[in-house]
Design a protein around this nucleic acid. Structure first.
Lengths: 133, 133
DNA sequence: CTTGACCCTGTAGTTGCTACAGGGGCTAGG
DNA sequence: CCTAGCCCCTGTAGCAACTACAGGGTCAAG
């Protein structure tokens, strides 16, 4: 009935080392052990790890995941705190998108300036420095 | 005439620690020292550091910057190697943009599902886990 | 002659893992 | 009973690209 760490890893598309790492930093509780000192996980742990992985896939930091987990333990609590974390994260994602979009534009401009000759004529290098190197 | 590390830092919007770090990893050559053992930089170093910062701002890794710097030293070389690095980086940026865009869509869907009640009703938590935690 | 801003070296911390090294256990085949 | 091959254990070190001290030295101004 109990899952070994390898089985849990395959079930959640996580590496065994990552699971042990999550335990070390207190994100996953230390499970009971078998006689051979193997970790023995139950369904609750599988659910918790799935939650963590899904949140990580959505780009939440481990610290945010920790907070989300502790908030989700209390079903009677106001949902606003959770919404605040998610919205803040969405805003961070949108800032990153804007940054990356600007970066792509600049990068394209730099690349297009290259005519294909020698480095001496290449505008990529020129575009990067102020010319005094 | 020579610049102190603090002046160079302000001129390139870099922190003093970062400049020392670049020196330690061999990205910036070790400059001559004053009698007081202070680093004394010239215009060439200013240009080189500007180049590095600009490339970093465009998202190139320090390893790519290292390669770009060594390629740019040789003005007679074919420009294709430089173009290859820049194009590969652009492709990486576009992959990242696609990933972030998908993530934003998912995140928005999760947030919109929250009606504003208690955690028990909150769809954000529900959306994250398989429900068995 | 002291204050405060700067500089020096060296080391340890950050995030989120990943990769060993060096050992033990468990099952199946010979 | 022995061995092969897989899985598990702990503990430590490494990655990128910085950042943040601690504990000192230097220098110009008042």
């Amino acid at each position: 009935m109990a899952l070994t760490i390898g089985t849990l890893a395959r079930a959640t598309a996580t590496s065994v080392e990552t699971i042990r790492y999550y335990e070390r930093i207190g994100l996953l509780p230390a499970p009971p052990r078998t006689r051979a000192n193997y970790r023995a996980y139950g369904q609750a742990q599988l659910g918790r790890l799935s939650f963590i992985r899904r949140a990580r896939d959505l780009g939440f930091s481990l610290d945010q995941v920790r907070t989300l987990l502790s908030l989700s333990d209390d079903a009677d609590r106001d949902c606003a705190a959770i919404d605040r974390i998610a919205t803040a994260h969405l805003e961070a994602v949108e800032r990153k998108l804007a940054d990356l979009t600007a970066l792509r534009r600049e990068l394209k401009a730099v690349i297009e300036s290259c005519g294909g000759g020698t480095v001496g004529d290449c505008r990529i290098i020129e575009a990067l420095g102020p010319g005094s190197d």
